[in-house]
Design a protein around this nucleic acid. Structure first.
Lengths: 376, 376
DNA sequence: ACTGGCTTTGAACACGTGTGCATAAAAATG
DNA sequence: CATTTTTATGCACACGTGTTCAAAGCCAGT
């Protein structure tokens, strides 16, 4: 009541005129002639404070551009309103879309997201997870292809809610969001069957890697439903990337009789297949139908645009965040959420060439132009 | 000295056996029979503490899985070791690579990064920037196409170091990293000239948008150097995206005589051009050479792979982070950093068809463009 | 006027860590 | 051994906010 000069709280406040001391809640309190408690309440819209003084306080705070420190608040409340997102690499288009969904949902609930790449490097994974622990994030989303079995115990010890997205090993201590690989690929292959294809190949990921086995099962199921005999030589493996798709496609083109359609583990694999197919002077979908999985933006710009199974990546990101929010709130969230893919039929799939021509001259394109020849 | 039972500090610690209270620095202190100050020093490798006790403390801390709270530390030190990154949308492949570079460099220096999409929405921009301010980030990187002139004053008031990346209006209160648009496009067009092209078109961004004018200048310069008369009707505008590229290319194909090469504002524009070109039954680079800008991964998978000017996106991200670190440290950083692009010659560019086939070749000069006329 | 309840406020403490300063213990120096 | 220097440690406070608790002020009802 007796302090009429609101100017200086710290005696040396004027020492560094450049590094203007940030205005704190106490400064606002002094200006409004109330205690900092009241200011705190006013700004948090507590009903415990007189509407008039609350309004006055808010005006002063706004005038001075005061913004309460989230770090101090976090220390007091033991909540940071912050989550951590671990990804293999943000420049993976799949991951990027997921993260977008997460962040969009997060900001809606006044959460901020820490982003960290781990590059599938165990050491880096540890560092990242520890940094999240240090920062006391309220939750974590992991969008790595595999949850490091290495650092699983670390995660467990932390007692921080965790949601895994499309993770290889949904573990017991974490919740997870998963695309329905089986049903997605079953539909994809069924689509090929409905077009009239009987010799349908599958280019997988590295064996047993990722969701390869589930997608393979879907492939098998679709064949069974159509009473098509499964032929082991129509299954080859790539690496989930374009390069692997290229090589795998080479292998397929080397086996006789040719397949008329190829279902690829994912879009990148299909992209690689395109390249090999073109190099052999063949065209999609005339000679060969192609289906991918993921629905990367990339597929839209292929020639022709790629038929694929769409993963609702952004939605999945949002769902992950929502699950996390439930876990944080203590409301039970579903342990494992399966989300449905959607078959996007574009121009890379069509009916196979006439059966007649296929019978006698399966080699009509076997005299391929020298693949090695390249215009410089 | 007399407390022999290290179990309980808080009397009600056992009330919530599930919500195990986090172990704090004081718990470690009690276990090691020292003050929390000593623990703090030991863990921060201060030379002020006896090596043996330090070792002992570290062992205990490690055993209990103790990790010092970054939020408490931030409150004490007034530094969060945290930066905020504002992007238009993380699912833009350009942005994603930049962010990857930023994060990689950040984690190297024990910084964590907050990621926030603003979707080029002013309201969202404000919300994002405020959240960063609340969280007391040590610095901010903005990778939006434009720095909202709206919130510039807000940024200024915050007194937080800011680095702009490829931003439209490098402003005076912030530092910036910029690609050398002029030199990049000059080289790209010079490359086309060196292949023998004389009728070279330019598909720009929306007029005056982004770096359009700088890239256009480079185009003009290359023409001038080759003594090629600038022809206004060879300049059309897209929207920086595939759709715009498609339409722009349609316009170009409608004008006679045809151009033999097209320099596009960016890769996405070129992607759109591909589509139109194919739709007209023409092939790249046989009928038309195509050059882009950015070097998105996408371009590699085009048929044929796209010649383009590479922006070292990841490096630029790292540079932005390094500049920020310097600013935070108080060491002066360069105000404006220009980084060089690199021409990536791939298969979308080749020599034009023989002049013979271009019967009325004389008309590129004869239809004299009005001399004094200037676009704009 | 007294009681009791309601509204509004401030004092005090907590959150977990870093650090200046004083001091105790140990070592070095005379 | 006495003194000074060095080393190691603890105390106390600061950082900025939230929150419990007590209390003051006000009002209505008797």
């Amino acid at each position: 009541m007796f302090s009429d000069t609101p100017a200086i709280g710290k005696s040396n406040a004027a020492l560094h005129p450049a590094a203007a001391k940030r205005v704190s809640i106490k400064d606002i309190a002094r200006l409004a002639r109330v205690s900092h408690s009241t200011v705190s309440r006013a700004l948090r819209e507590s009903p415990l404070v007189n509407p008039e003084t609350a309004e006055k306080i808010r005006r002063i705070a706004s005038d001075r551009g005061f913004r309460a420190s989230a770090v101090a608040r976090s220390l007091a409340t033991n909540r940071t309103n912050t989550i951590g997102v671990v990804v293999t690499s943000i420049d993976d288009p799949f991951v990027a879309e997921v993260v977008k969904g997460i962040e969009d949902e997060a900001i809606l609930h006044d959460y901020s997201v820490f982003l960290a790449n781990c590059h599938a490097d165990p050491e880096r994974e540890m560092k990242v997870v520890h940094s999240f622990e240090d920062r006391r994030v309220d939750g974590i989303v992991v969008t790595a292809s595999r949850v490091g079995a290495l650092y699983a115990p670390v995660l467990e010890r932390m007692h921080i809610p965790i949601v895994l997205l499309n993770n290889q090993h949904p573990s017991q201590f974490a919740h997870s969001i998963l695309i329905d690989n089986f049903e997605g690929s079953r539909q994809a292959v069924a689509h090929l069957v409905s077009l009239g294809h009987r010799r349908i190949a599958y280019i997988g990921d590295r064996f047993g890697h990722g969701s390869d086995s589930e997608r393979f099962s879907g492939y098998r199921a679709a064949l069974d439903e159509a009473d098509i005999l499964f032929q082991p030589d129509l299954v080859v493996h790539g690496d989930g990337k374009a390069e692997g798709g290229r090589h795998a496609m080479e292998k397929l083109l080397a086996t006789r009789p040719h397949c008329t359609a190829v279902f690829c583990y994912n879009d990148m694999t299909a992209i690689g297949a395109y390249k090999t197919i073109r190099a052999h002077g063949l065209t999609v979908p005339r000679h060969l139908s192609l289906v991918g999985f993921d629905d990367l933006p990339l597929g839209l710009y292929m020639d022709p645009p790629l038929t694929t199974v769409r993963q609702p990546k952004q939605d999945m990101g949002r769902m992950a965040m929502q699950a996390l929010l439930k876990l944080i709130a203590g409301t039970g969230a579903e342990q494992n959420l399966r989300v449905a893919g959607e078959l996007m039929i574009r121009q890379s799939t069509a009916a196979p060439l006439e059966h007649a021509s296929q019978e006698n001259q399966t080699c009509h394109y076997s005299s391929a132009p020298k693949p090695g020849r390249r215009r410089k």
